[in-house]
Computed example of a mutant assay.
Amino acid sequence: MKKYVVAVTGASGIIYARRLLEVLTPLAEVHIIISDMAKKIADYEEVDLSGFDGIYVAEKDMFADIASGSFRYDAMVIIPCSMKTLAAINSGFSDNLITRAADVCLKEGRKCILMPREMPLSGIHLRNMAELDGAGATIMVISPGFYLKPKTIDDLIDMVVARVLDHLGVKHSISERWSGN
Rank of each mutant, 00 (worst) to 15 (best):
Ser50Asn: 05
His172Phe: 10
Met37His: 11
Met115Gln: 03
Ile78Trp: 07
Asp133Cys: 08
Met62Leu: 14
Ala64Met: 03
Ala75Trp: 14
Ile55Tyr: 05
Ile157Leu: 15
Ile124Gly: 03
Val23Phe: 00
Val77Trp: 12
Lys40Met: 12
Thr25Ser: 08
Val164Glu: 10
Glu45Ala: 05
Ile174Ala: 01
Pro80Asp: 12
Met129Ser: 05
Lys107Ala: 01
Ile139Asp: 04
Asp48Val: 04
Val6Gln: 07
Gly92Arg: 02
Val161Gly: 14
Gly134Ser: 04
Gly169Phe: 12
Met159Tyr: 11
Glu131Ala: 01
Glu22Ile: 09
Val30His: 08
Ser91Trp: 00
Gly10Asn: 00
Pro26Asn: 05
Pro120Gln: 11
Glu29Cys: 00
Ile41Trp: 04
Val30Phe: 10
Asp65His: 08
Lys111Arg: 11
Ser68Asn: 12
Met76Arg: 15
Ile66Asp: 04
Ile139Ala: 04
Val77Glu: 11
Met140Val: 09
Ala87Pro: 06
Phe93Gly: 01
Asp36Thr: 14
Asp36Ser: 14
Val161Tyr: 15
Ser175Cys: 12
Met140His: 05
Ala11Pro: 02
Ala28Phe: 07
Glu108Ser: 11
Leu121Ala: 13
Ile124Lys: 07
Trp178Cys: 04
Arg110Met: 12
Tyr56Ile: 05
Phe71Asp: 14
Asp53Ala: 06
Lys107Ser: 07
Lys39Ser: 00
Met140Gln: 06
Ser173Trp: 06
Val104Trp: 04
Lys171Phe: 00
Gly134His: 00
Thr138Glu: 12
Arg19Thr: 14
His31Ile: 02
Ile89Val: 15
Gly145Ala: 12
Asp133Gln: 10
Thr9Glu: 01
Gly145Arg: 06
Ile98Lys: 08
Lys151Ala: 13
Ile66His: 06
Ser91Cys: 03
Ser91Arg: 07
Asp155Lys: 13
Leu156Gly: 06
Arg177Val: 05
Ser94Ile: 10
Ala67Asp: 03
Asp36Trp: 09
Leu168Ile: 14
Thr152Lys: 13
Arg127Ala: 11
Pro150Ser: 03
Thr25Phe: 01
Ser143Arg: 08
Asp155Glu: 15
Val5Lys: 08
Val23Asn: 00
His172Asp: 09
Ile157Thr: 15
Glu45Ile: 07
Gly145Phe: 05
Arg163Leu: 14
Val164Ala: 12
Pro26Ser: 03
Leu20Gly: 08
Ile139Leu: 07
Met159Val: 00
Lys3Gln: 08
Val30Leu: 08
Asp43Cys: 05
Ala101Asn: 10
Asp95Met: 02
Val47Ser: 03
Gly69Leu: 08
Arg18Lys: 15
Lys2Tyr: 06
Cys105Tyr: 01
Ile33Met: 12
Lys40Thr: 09
Glu131Lys: 02
Asp43Ala: 08
Ile124Val: 14
Met1Leu: 13
